[in-house]
Amino acid sequence: MPPKSTSSSAPSNSVQSLLKSYTDTTSPRLKLIDTLLLFLMLSGIIQFVYCILVTNFPFNAFLAGFGSCVGQFVLTASLRSQVNPANRAEFKEVSPERAFAEFALGSIVLHFFVYNFLG
């Protein structure tokens, strides 16, 4: 989706304009994915903070938890960019459905390793 709605006469605060443009132009499906991304990011950050502040003792468990967040994040982000209509031209061979199937497969493989690593 080209950013048509953002105009050069937008408020000086660019962050606000960014948010406005985002809420205006993004489809609810993508927003759904974005909230999931946000969720994963927050979970990952909390675990990282715990690791830094308190302890990294079962290091494999931390890596599994953090890795699952990061992995799921990038897989979801991949899904997002694949289903994003704006990127249609880039992904000629990947339909949104195939993207979801790939997402599911990738997640299962990721979760397998996460559980294996959890200890």
């Binding site: 927003k31 909230t35 946000l38 969720f39 927050l42 979970s43």
Partner: peptide, 13 residues
């Protein structure tokens, strides 16, 4: 604390 992103997620959803 790890659980509170769930509220964020559910809230947005």
């Amino acid at each position: 604390f790890v659980f509170w992103p769930w509220f964020v997620l559910l809230g947005f959803w």
